[in-house]
């Protein structure tokens, strides 16, 4: 396991920039139960957000906000962009429950991936993204909502933190990320 990750790191080091989120080696599993690392999403622009499936209000809003961004993209760019949602509640959000959420929220599997990890890795990702969260009353999780845009090599190039702000500049950033060539070192 350690040998594997060191090997992986050595293999990637020449091409991943120093501030790429894809340097994180934590293991995740998706809604199908498949094990993967964040670097699996390398190659395409990614909209990355943290949520939890039982979230009554903020997360449905967050998901609809991602859909709004997608809808605002020209078709060519929309086809490229992937969406990754990582749960803040890795204990209760099992792959089965995440799969159920995909269905109930009409999230197309080709474009959307829902991930869970362990509590420690969850806090790592939140720390990297600047997401603040804590256990709230009655099993709720209070958290800040934001959508990060990762470029093809995993760098955060834009963050939509204020979901009530106008969409234009964020959409423009997504279009820009989608149009840039997939060179290993980025733009």
């Amino acid at each position: 396991m350690i040998a594997l990750s060191v090997a992986a790191l050595l293999a990637l080091a020449p091409t991943l920039p120093d501030d790429s989120l894809y340097l994180v080696e934590d293991r995740y599993e998706d809604q199908t139960g498949r094990a993967l690392q964040l670097v699996s999403f390398r190659g395409e622009p990614v909209l990355l957000a943290m949520f939890y499936a039982r979230c009554p209000q903020a997360c449905p809003l967050l998901i609809s906000e991602v859909k709004r961004v997608l809808a605002a993209l020209p078709p060519a760019e929309r086809d490229i962009v992937k969406v990754v949602l990582v749960t803040l509640d890795p204990v209760r959000d099992t792959p089965a429950f995440l799969r159920q959420t995909m269905t109930s929220r009409s999230l197309a599997p080709g474009r959307w991936t829902l991930l869970r990890s362990n509590p420690e890795a969850t806090r790592t990702l939140a720390a990297l993204l600047g997401v603040r969260y804590r256990a709230g009353a009655g099993g709720a999780i209070d958290h800040s909502s934001q959508i990060a845009l990762l470029d093809r090599v995993g760098r955060t190039v834009a963050v939509r933190g204020d979901l009530s702000a106008p969409l234009e500049s964020f959409v423009a950033a997504v279009v820009d990320a989608a149009r840039r060539p997939a060179s290993p070192t980025g733009p």
Binding site: R123, A126, A127, G130, V131, R132, Y133, R134, D142, H143, S144, G161, D162, S164
Partner: peptide
């Protein structure tokens, strides 16, 4: 501390 980022102050408009 492990959970230094539990306080929700980044969003100035939230109640927190």
């Amino acid at each position: 501390v492990e959970d230094f980022n539990f306080a929700l102050v980044k969003d100035g408009r939230s109640g927190d």
